[in-house]
């Protein structure tokens, strides 16, 4: 399968990318690893007129502690995130979830920023950053702004990012030794999650249970109120609108969300 033809620019800096976005934002798509964008272009579900390739911008690839948070460059590849010593110590959920994305070849190319900007509700990392209560940093020639992850995802494949903005950084709180777990239910090894549940420090993020990644707020509130894991997990599908497709019915996904939440909470509690 061949994408529709497009023009191609490979800026040598973030500022160069921002200048191109300012000029061509509506018609352009930013490509990092290309592992979300290129497949949809090959299927001709997307046909940007211009690709702005940021895959070689090393200034967007880093993982570092910054105060109470870990800052991750948007162009950091999944294979780097999964093996990061900083994340293993400070935010092991993120490293653990990155390890479940796709397969090794995909993780050698795909980036954390690309995964978040693509905003597929079936993706693993958006729900993980949501469970962590992270922030995304967006830059444009107009300036830099931080958006709480709770306000970033606005629908399937859509975010609060403006056409002239570039997602440059993801920030997550340092959770250190807090219990965490990720339960991902797939039919085959490198499939998308039918449902996934990320748990860290009493917060629960749900994969593929609605138009965006979701927090299981009823479960979180029950836990905070002293409910047992079993009782709290039984509320995990409250307020969700899961999709229905070949992989499962709505009711099946609701069932999975409850079961996987119980498993993830149990693992995170050391059980």
């Amino acid at each position: 399968m061949i994408p529709v033809g497009f023009a191609y620019e490979r800026p040598s800096s973030v500022d160069g990318a921002l200048a191109l976005l300012a000029e061509h934002g509506e018609e352009a798509s930013v490509m990092a690893g290309g592992h979300s964008l290129l497949p949809v272009m090959k299927l001709r579900l997307a046909a940007p007129e211009l690709i702005i390739d940021i895959s070689k911008l090393s200034e967007l690839s880093y993982v570092k502690v910054d105060g109470d948070e870990v800052a991750i460059g948007a162009g950091t590849r999944h294979s780097t995130v999964e093996r990061s010593d900083v994340l293993a110590a400070e935010s092991p959920l993120l490293a653990g979830v990155a390890r479940t994305v796709g397969d090794p070849q995909v993780r050698h190319r795909g980036t954390i920023g690309g995964s978040l900007a693509h905003a597929d509700p079936a993706s693993d990392l958006p729900a993980a950053v949501l469970a962590l209560g992270g922030t995304v940093v967006l830059r444009s020639p107009r300036g830099t702004r931080s958006v709480p992850i709770t306000e970033f995802f606005t629908g399937v494949f859509s975010t609060a990012k403006e056409p002239d903005e570039l997602l440059v950084e993801i920030r997550v709180p340092r959770t250190g030794g807090a219990g965490w777990a990720y339960e991902k239910f797939t039919r085959r090894a490198n499939d998308w999650a039918i449902v996934g549940v990320a748990v860290v420090d009493g917060r629960v993020g749900l994969v593929n249970m609605g138009q965006t990644p979701l927090r299981a707020t009823a479960t979180e509130e029950a836990l905070a109120g002293g409910a047992s894991i079993a009782d709290a997990a039984a509320l995990a599908d409250q307020g969700t609108e899961p999709p229905e497709d070949l992989a499962g019915t709505k009711e099946y996904r609701r069932h999975l969300a409850r079961v996987l939440t119980r498993r993830a909470l149990t693992t995170a509690a050391g059980g």
Binding site: M1, Y8, M31, G34, H35, L38, P39, K42, I51, D53, S79, G102, D103, P104, Q105, V106, H108, R109, N190
Partner: peptide
């Protein structure tokens, strides 16, 4: 041709990648 099967795997700077999903 959809990043699934891995038949097109080559090394890019020494790391495995699927060459059907890299320009």
């Amino acid at each position: 041709d959809t990043t699934s099967c891995g038949a097109c795997t080559v090394l890019l700077d020494g790391e495995s990648i699927k060459s059907c999903t890299v320009l």
